[in-house]
Design a binder for these strands. Structure first.
Lengths: 168, 168
DNA sequence: AGATTAGCGTGCGCCGAACACGCTTCGTAC
DNA sequence: GTACGAAGCGTGTTCGGCGCACGCTAATCT
């Protein structure tokens, strides 16, 4: 009998619990000041991944509305971690970019998370840890998201809201 | 250089995105009626795991306030999926329990999720899938949650938002 | 140059979640 | 046996985040 599906489903259920997310984010953002918390960190981290980009693009990246991005960016900007600058190629666009301080902070935070994770599997054989990392990445990239998320198609332009608020 | 920590961190970041959770839950609860959605499903599923228990205990389990549990239980009760019964051992306590219909539905939902997951990694070699399931389970059980738990000393008086009180 | 389109910031309404109150019931002390 | 503190539940209230709609500016097409 193939039980892998159930095993993964159970683990995923635990992983997606609100408390797990809250724990992880509170661990990450502990002592980083009021500006960086569970809410702003995804913007923070996403911006570090994409590099300077517009609020709309960043919204696509992290799955949030432009207005939400704007609000969170306000907080980060006020804390000196994020900078708004006009797009030299497009006068109406505003680029969001991390300041040097912001980049340093996000790098330190990413390292903190990575260290925490490595510490949590310190007892694992090295090879199993690497295997796990590889399989998890593949699972996230190919498996789950591909099936559940349209992601890339820039065609619909506006309405990517599909299943999120379905049933309302 | 050991990059496993960063790899896992990145994958985890994607996994914990709101959209991922929303997509997964909407997929799960699609066509199950108005009572079961992203909001009520954690209560639903958690109750199936714990068996009949009080609202407070279930709140501890899923990391939500008692009042929230009560409201969601109302919806499930109204839909005939959940039953309230007085605790025979304690007159002031109210036990939440799934009805037969509720149990059947949660079982079907779990199977649906498992099938979806298995489908998403259909192209994987059988052995790798099983390995991944085993490692993921271990990672969730031993690694992450265990390390993130010692967050207890939270002052109730403070309006702290992420008052994470992971039972389990 | 005018019209259309794309993009951003902001006010507004909705909804979920925690907090505070009142009521009932259990346990214990006198 | 009675009275008092503690525990638990349900409900009203408040707070905050999020998406949507509006108005404006700038770029692109005809």
């Amino acid at each position: 009998m193939n039980e892998t599906g159930h095993d993964i489903a159970d683990a995923l259920g635990l992983l997606l619990r609100r408390t797990t997310r809250a724990h992880l984010y509170s661990l990450l953002t502990e002592g980083l000041g009021e500006a960086v918390d569970e809410l702003t960190y995804p913007v923070f981290s996403g911006l570090a991944r994409t590099g300077p980009c517009s609020a709309a693009d960043l919204g696509r990246e992290v799955g949030l509305d432009r207005s939400t991005i704007t609000r969170r960016a306000d907080r980060l900007e006020h804390a000196g971690l994020l900078r708004r600058e006009p797009d030299p190629a497009d006068g109406r666009a505003t680029l969001l970019a991390l300041t040097d301080e912001g980049q340093g902070l996000v790098a330190a935070t990413r390292r903190r998370l990575a260290d925490h994770i490595e510490g949590s599997l310190a007892s694992w054989p090295q090879e199993e840890a690497r295997t796990f990392a590889r399989l998890l990445r593949r699972f996230v990239d190919e498996g789950l998201l591909a099936a559940g998320e349209p992601e890339h198609p820039a065609a619909p332009g506006q309405g990517r809201r599909g299943a999120v608020d379905a049933g309302r």
